[in-house]
């Protein structure tokens, strides 16, 4: 991902900013200009609660260029409703199960080569009790 794109996406990547329809209240992530519930065009920025449950997951045999193994990918159903595609982290592949609780954490998502910048954004991990969060 080149820098201008990363800059544009930082609200979504850092704060899980989706959109909430001012007409019907439907919440969407990824953000889009039209509401999928009612077709309304008046949407406001809405930061999603950073918690959810694993809806599905996979471990990829090889990580794509710029990503570290183990490459654990999931769909996470957030408390606010939307299902988000994200990497899982801080967990052994054999411990992942559909339905397990996870929370958002900001991590390095990809590296643009040895001399490039780092792209940070959301990943999900098993909840860490308050006071122990790293």
């Amino acid at each position: 991902m080149d820098l201008p794109r990363y800059h544009r996406l930082r609200g979504a990547y850092y704060r899980l900013e989706g959109r909430r329809c001012t007409g019907c209240g439907a919440v969407a992530f990824p953000p889009r200009p039209a509401c999928r519930g009612c077709g309304g065009r008046e949407l406001e920025v809405h930061a999603l609660a950073p918690r959810g449950r694993v809806h599905s997951f996979t471990e990829m045999a090889t990580a794509p260029r710029g990503f570290d193994p183990p490459h654990l990918m999931a769909l996470v159903e957030l408390e606010d409703g939307p299902i988000i595609a994200a990497q899982l982290t801080d967990i052994d592949p054999e411990d992942i199960a559909i339905g397990m609780e996870v929370e958002m954490v900001t991590r390095r998502i990809q590296e643009k080569g040895p001399h490039g910048y780092l792209v940070y954004g959301y990943k999900f991990r098993p909840p860490v009790p308050r006071g122990e969060a790293s």
Partner: peptide
């Protein structure tokens, strides 16, 4: 796939299909 919200997070085409297959088995 969605470049901003899937591919750029490391989802390959096989990876996304795997999510469907796992859910189907579940």
């Amino acid at each position: 796939a969605d470049q901003d919200f899937e591919a750029s997070h490391g989802f390959s085409f096989a990876g996304l299909s795997a999510l469907l297959m796992r859910r189907y088995m579940h």
